[in-house]
Every structure is written in C-alpha cells, then in structure tokens.
C-alpha cells in the first residue's frame, strides 16, 4: 500500500473520522470550560488554552484532572 494522502483517507476514514470527532470534541468541551471560568486550580487561561490545543487528548485530560477546580467559580 502506498501512503499517498487521498488513498490513505479513503482507506481509513471509518477509523479516522470517529478519532477526529472524539479528539476535537474533547478539545472543544475543555475550551468551553476554560472560557467559562476565570480561576483554575493552578495556572492561567492562556496556559490552559495552549495546553489543550497543542496536546491532543493529553491536554484536555490534564485540564480536567488537574486544572479544573471543584468549586463552581473555578
């Protein structure tokens, strides 16, 4: 199989599409939460936005595990 891009997408869209949806979905949910809050357990808004956007999957997971506070304003 040659790895030309269009062929690759045609061959693997049944997996790539759900993966992309999950990754982007997770990122958007994390971003929504970041922008709805002004305070975090640590760090600031810019830092968390960068982490969530740059590191797919790991970024949002890190945000929901360590960044998001437990009270309603965090």
């Amino acid at each position: 199989m040659d790895l030309n891009e269009t062929q690759f997408l045609i061959d693997y869209w049944p997996t790539l599409l759900p993966v992309a949806i999950l990754e982007v979905g997770l990122m958007l949910v994390a971003l929504k939460h970041i922008f709805q809050h002004t305070r975090y357990r640590f760090g600031n808004r810019v830092m968390w936005v960068v982490i969530v956007v740059v590191f797919q999957i790991i970024g949002p997971v890190a945000y929901f595990t360590w960044g998001k506070g437990t009270t309603s304003d965090e």
Binding site: T15, V19, L22, G25, V29, I57, F64, T65
Partner: peptide
C-alpha cells in the same frame, strides 16, 4: 458532572479505535 466519566469514556474509545489502525 466533574466530567470524569466523559474523559474516561473518550480515552478508552480512542484506544479502541486506534488499536486496529496502529496495527495496520
């Protein structure tokens, strides 16, 4: 509400989707 279940589900679904892809 703390989104722990959501995060867990998404991560495990990604594992599930990417395992056959990675092997291929």
């Amino acid at each position: 509400r703390t989104r722990r279940f959501g995060v867990l589900a998404v991560v495990f679904l990604l594992f599930a989707l990417m395992s056959p892809l990675a092997a291929k």
